[in-house]
Design a protein around this nucleic acid. Sequence first.
DNA 1: TGGCCAATGTTATAAATTGCACAAGCATTC
DNA 2: GAATGCTTGTGCAATTTATAACATTGGCCA
Lengths: 212, 212
Amino acid sequence: MEIPSVVIERLPLYARALEALAHEGREVVSSQELGQRLGVTPAQIRKDLSYFGRFGKQGRGYNVQNLLSALRQILGLDRQWRMALVGVGRLGRAIVQYEGFAPQGFRIVHAFDADPRIVGQEVNGLTVRDVSELEEVLAREPVEIGIVAVPALVAQEVIDRLVRAGVRAILNYAPITARVPRGVQIRRVDPVLALQSMTYYLRQGSNAQSAK
Amino acid sequence: MEIPSVVIERLPLYARALEALAHEGREVVSSQELGQRLGVTPAQIRKDLSYFGRFGKQGRGYNVQNLLSALRQILGLDRQWRMALVGVGRLGRAIVQYEGFAPQGFRIVHAFDADPRIVGQEVNGLTVRDVSELEEVLAREPVEIGIVAVPALVAQEVIDRLVRAGVRAILNYAPITARVPRGVQIRRVDPVLALQSMTYYLRQGSNAQSAK
DNA sequence: TGGCCAATGTTATAAATTGCACAAGCATTC
DNA sequence: GAATGCTTGTGCAATTTATAACATTGGCCA
């Protein structure tokens, strides 16, 4: 069965909320309460989960730990993922130092840059390599995920190279809409786009609400 | 007329592609070509634009400059926007120094933190203030947009305060699903969620494609 | 042990979104 | 100045996504 990508994209949200609940020591949660926390209807949660099986108990709800484990397994979060960063400028450095990846099992194991002044530097225990070595290094020590933090003008090229080197998932921080072959995942991280869609609703006399 | 938020969220993409075209010296572009660049069907582009007026010429396409100006005005990008950052830790510092905001008219004018070791520091020409002064400062020098880069545990509280202080748009870097009143815009910037939805498709034997 | 309550899983319905297809219109060429 | 080719704007159909409703089932309590 083909599961809609909108559904897949909501699952990490559910997982995160369950983590919080587990932290609070909660054993059971209903779709009602989970939905309230996430701003999602209970029906949607039940529908989403039903794509993967039956995790709840009528009259009670979901066991927090059970459902969390199930979601982790579904999403592949029950393992470590290796990542290669390309572009170690200001943004790239911030990405390397971001504390949010490791606790979730995402580890940056390679860092590449084209600037000879940056190549060789040590960043957070990682030695920056020349981007010309990308293919070679990934052949020797493969990664599952690529992170792109290079200038817009070279981003597509870098993405192409990552894909040719076997990377099947890319997190793109560059402000472009990159094209990737079918079967390769790509996600954009772009605060400016987010801002630019919000300003629409802020315009004087906009009157727009979009509580959707 | 109520314009779907999915449409609004695509407009900045169009604007960005048009900027690139303008840079290349292109005068005219068809929905066909624009769509190709963005991985969107030409019909969708035409439909989206038709919510706002008639910008093209049959047989020719769209004048790049004209359409870009129109989109800028629709989105409110033809002015400056002031932003207040809350949370000047590692992530917050990276946000202050991010070079992508200013060229698009987004300027951080206040920075707040709760840590006395950080308060008073100068970051990129901005003096970090104590978060307790948030309301006071925003009353004197208002901003349109708030940026939240605080730990998850206090994020909702900070967001509530920003909203009460009159901020109607929030860019949230904290890993929570925050609730805001109707009429307040909020966008999440969360690389981990992006990663966690990609791993689903990477799982061994997943066979999933999602070219969608 | 039987009945009641609560929340699931699922089917049906509604809403939103996308894509198709084509008439209409502009520009260019002959 | 008519014909041709190309691309827009838009009504309609198809698809996707979300919501509602409800029969079903597990747990609990008397």
